[in-house]
């Protein structure tokens, strides 16, 4: 059964198409990721699904309810963490949580089992004001607040933006725990490396979805062999390879350059031979499995 079903949603702001004919489904109990840069339309999609925004056209249901007609029913069933959600800074951890519990017509005790693992981590700071918490702890508190009424579906809009690596890792661990408890999770992120942590992902750019599948499938459908190369002077190498007619694409990727060749059956030796023309010092090349970011770049090239 589908928890979320989106069909041909369009949303425009003036002349900008924020969401351009988007369709996707999220299965019950799935951890689904919307992956794309700022301005790709992720937030608009979240707002439409949480009944905060009306689409220009298209339909969407959440937990079987229509986002326009049955907005009250949806508001009872979803947990939502907006991108800029920062809680009430002047209220303590406990007060924030109690407040949201009451607003959602429940109490901390009622659904304690669900938030226990997360809440235990911030509990020592119960009487600290939310404004004085670190980014990671704020995020945990926000997640507790979004979970307090035991929602069927959790919508998390860029929950890891501006949070450090340690907190990010902990956060994804928490999401996996929640998934085990049967909660459907829709999460958005601009960080491509987080895509691998989702069951299925949609790569989204300029309001439209370029690809939907499991991360493994997306990686496997990368059309060509991908190579990573480096040299002492990486910028020179980048310029040289990019200018070479045998190289199809070449771009920086961390400490390496990633490149594809025009010929189908090229290998490391082909590239070494090409590079040799330019005499780079400390040259290395290896064939690699593409990352989601490579796929994203490839798909953007197709658009």
């Amino acid at each position: 059964m589908s928890s979320v079903r989106v069909k041909n949603i369009i949303k425009t702001y003036g002349e900008v198409k924020a969401v351009d004919n988007v369709s996707f489904e999220v299965q019950k109990g799935e951890l689904f990721g919307l992956i794309g840069p700022d301005g790709a339309g992720k937030t608009s999609i979240f707002r439409i699904l949480t009944t905060l925004l009306l689409a220009d056209s298209g339909t969407a249901t959440v937990d079987g309810y229509d986002v326009v007609k049955d907005y009250q029913a949806i508001r009872n069933r979803v947990g939502y963490m907006p991108g800029r959600f920062s809680l009430y800074q002047d209220l303590t951890v406990k007060e924030n949580l109690t407040f949201f519990a009451t607003v959602f017509g429940t109490s901390i005790e009622e659904n304690y089992a669900l938030i226990k693992d997360i809440y235990e981590q911030i509990r020592p700071f119960n009487n600290r004001r939310a404004g004085k918490l670190s980014g990671g702890m704020k995020q945990k508190l926000a997640l507790c607040c979004a979970l307090i009424h035991k929602p069927a579906i959790l919508f998390l809009d860029e929950p890891t933006t501006g949070v450090d690596v340690v907190s990010r890792k902990e956060f994804w661990d928490m999401l996996n725990q929640l998934k085990k408890q049967g909660i459907t999770i829709v999460v958005s992120t601009p960080y491509m490396d987080e895509a691998m942590l989702c069951d299925r992902i949609a790569l989204i750019q300029n309001g439209s979805i370029m690809s939907i599948n499991t991360p493994d499938h997306i990686v496997q459908s990368f059309p060509k062999p991908l190579f990573a190369a480096k040299a002492d002077n990486i910028y020179r190498l980048l310029q040289d390879l990019r200018a070479d007619t045998e190289v199809e694409s070449c771009y920086a990727f961390g400490e390496y350059l990633h490149l594809t060749l025009r010929v189908k059956d090229g290998n490391e030796h082909t590239i070494s031979a090409i590079a040799a023309k330019y005499n780079p010092g400390g040259f290395e090349v290896k064939r690699i499995a593409p990352a989601i970011e490579d796929c994203f770049i490839e798909l953007m090239g197709n658009e």
């Binding site: 491509m192 980048l238 920086a252």
Partner: peptide
């Protein structure tokens, strides 16, 4: 932060060039 991967590469190209 926040830009698409292609724009990001263009940005790094500029940084490499400056360096």
């Amino acid at each position: 932060g926040g830009v698409d991967p292609v724009t990001r590469r263009q940005f790094w190209d500029m940084i490499y060039e400056a360096a």
